[in-house]
């Protein structure tokens, strides 16, 4: 399934592009598909995202990591038009995307998935897939009334969907309701459906969350395949093993800002990253008492927040 010869060539190409790039936050890339400039999002007094500058290299797999609450998902929401940024701008293939609504972002070739899978459970797997196709004649109100006008296109779409379902091992589930799928299968369906859009950049929000370990390898393979087909992948993930395994480049966020960038092997040992994950004062693993103490601090903060909000 994953043709090994091409894998190495595409991966090599991606790695070659990153060769010799400095590991500083916001470093320019040779051929960026996405360029982000000073994006800020505040919720009341809380600044959830404050990204100064970041570029995503075309044809690579880039991981976006960071501790909980670092603003990764909010950042995703800004970029894909699901939430409006307070300040800043970003361009995809040179086209400005600030203020562009989510559906037009997707049409321009930048498609995302969600942390909590959004399989449309009362639609069949096949209907889910068909929904992803763009420029459907039958989605126009008046042409929908003349089945002859969209049947031909629908057959083409179905054929493409079947190929993808085959590849994602969901062909047997073709006519089942998406609601009957397992968590991992839903992730697969969501990814396959995103491919139906025909994206250039695929943005995956925690593709491995809640997936049965048996399916993890297969999902990893599918993500790698995206690069082989010439797509760019940007994904949010917590699982460091997975990040190390598949990503060509890693961007680290903490408290809304990008704090470090670099190849996966060097980034894991970066002191800024370790500080961000463990808190600045910990250079040794936490003891049980320390963990308890941190937990209590966090709870106190929570209560304070509740106080303040109400």
């Amino acid at each position: 399934m994953h043709a090994d010869t091409t894998v190495t060539s595409k991966k090599a190409a991606a790695l070659a592009a990153f060769e010799g790039i400095e590991t500083e936050p916001g470093v320019p890339k040779p051929d960026p598909i996405l360029v982000v400039e000073k994006v800020v999002r505040r919720f009341g007094g809380l600044t959830a995202v404050d990204v100064d500058h970041v570029e995503i290299q075309r044809g690579s797999i880039t991981a976006l990591i960071g501790p909980n609450g670092a603003g990764k998902t909010t950042f995703f929401n800004q970029l894909t038009g699901f939430d409006t940024a307070d300040e800043g701008s970003w361009s995809f293939n040179g086209k400005q995307l600030k203020g562009v609504p989510a559906h037009r972002v997707a049409r321009s070739g930048m498609v995302r998935t969600f942390q909590l899978t959004k399989a449309l459970s009362k639609l069949t797997v096949m209907e889910n897939m068909r929904l992803g196709a763009q420029n459907q004649r039958g989605e126009n109100f008046f042409r929908a009334l003349i089945p002859g006008s969209w049947r031909g296109q629908e057959d083409e779409i179905t054929e493409r969907a079947e190929e993808l379902l085959e590849r994602f091992k969901l062909a047997a589930k073709r006519d089942d309701f998406a609601g009957s799928l397992s968590g991992g299968q839903r992730k697969l369906l969501e990814m396959a459906r995103a491919l139906m859009v025909g994206p250039e950049l695929v943005m995956l929000d925690e593709p491995m969350a809640g997936v049965n370990p048996a399916l993890t390898q297969s999902l990893l393979g599918h993500v790698k395949d995206l690069r082989e087909e010439g797509m760019t992948v940007l994904f949010v993930e917590h699982d460091m093993d997975m990040v190390r395994d598949i990503s060509d480049w890693v961007i680290v966020m903490a408290q809304g800002a990008v704090i470090a960038e670099g190849p996966p092997d060097t980034i894991m040992s970066d002191s800024r990253v370790i500080d961000a994950y463990l808190g600045a004062h910990h250079d040794a693993p936490m003891s049980a008492e320390e963990a308890e103490e941190q937990l209590q601090e966090a709870e106190a903060e929570l209560e304070a927040e509740i106080e303040e909000k109400a």
């Binding site: 709870e299 929570l302 209560e303 509740i306 909000k309 109400a310």
Partner: peptide, 14 residues
């Protein structure tokens, strides 16, 4: 009550 209204999941977990 205000905590629950603000965020039921958060309130339950605290």
């Amino acid at each position: 009550a205000r905590a629950v209204a603000d965020n039921p999941a958060l309130a339950a977990s605290s």
